[in-house]
């Protein structure tokens, strides 16, 4: 990638970490993100139908987006919280979710909505996991942004 893409600081840090590694080391780091993906909280566990399935991923992954109610008068400043569920037999998908969680969880609505669609291509993973598979992360990001937009309107 020669284009400079503006990423939120936490996401930029992840992207820089990946950029420094060899292809094989990138896979290992992705595996660490996969293993580090937070468990679903109680209120989602066992109720995947309350979450949104990411159809762009061939493995079953579900995501949920929560947006704080405050500040009431500035929806763009409300904090965003992300939750993912993906099985251990889909480590790449879990790894993508882990990167997005690390990079986006806790940001404000405005910050999440400003993340460029091309963000998934900033982690130097094209060679290691193939561009085709990266489309799964593009789908996750696009669904997250769509939900954030919807849920910050009220």
């Amino acid at each position: 990638m020669t284009d400079t893409v503006d990423l939120p600081p936490a996401m930029r840090e992840v992207a820089d970490d990946f950029a420094e590694l060899t292809a094989n080391e990138r896979l290992q780091l992705l595996l660490e993100f996969s293993e580090g993906l937070p468990e679903l909280p109680e209120r989602y566990a066992g109720s995947l139908d309350s979450m949104e399935q990411v159809h762009e991923c061939q493995s079953p992954i579900f995501l949920a987006v929560e947006v704080d109610d405050e500040p009431a008068d500035r929806p763009g400043d409300r904090a965003v919280h992300l939750f993912f569920s993906a099985p251990p037999e889909a480590p790449t998908t879990r790894g993508f979710a882990g990167i997005l969680h690390e990079g986006l969880d806790g940001l404000t609505v405005a910050e999440v909505l400003a993340v460029p669609e091309a963000a998934p291509y900033q982690f130097s993973l094209g060679e290691a996991v193939s561009p085709l598979r990266l489309r799964g992360m593009v789908g996750m990001l696009s669904r997250i942004k769509r939900q954030v937009a919807l849920k910050s309107q009220s």
Binding site: L31, P91, T93
Partner: peptide, 9 residues
């Protein structure tokens, strides 16, 4: 595998 990381797990 479909999942490129599965072997590594």
């Amino acid at each position: 595998d479909e999942d490129v990381l599965l072997y590594d797990t």
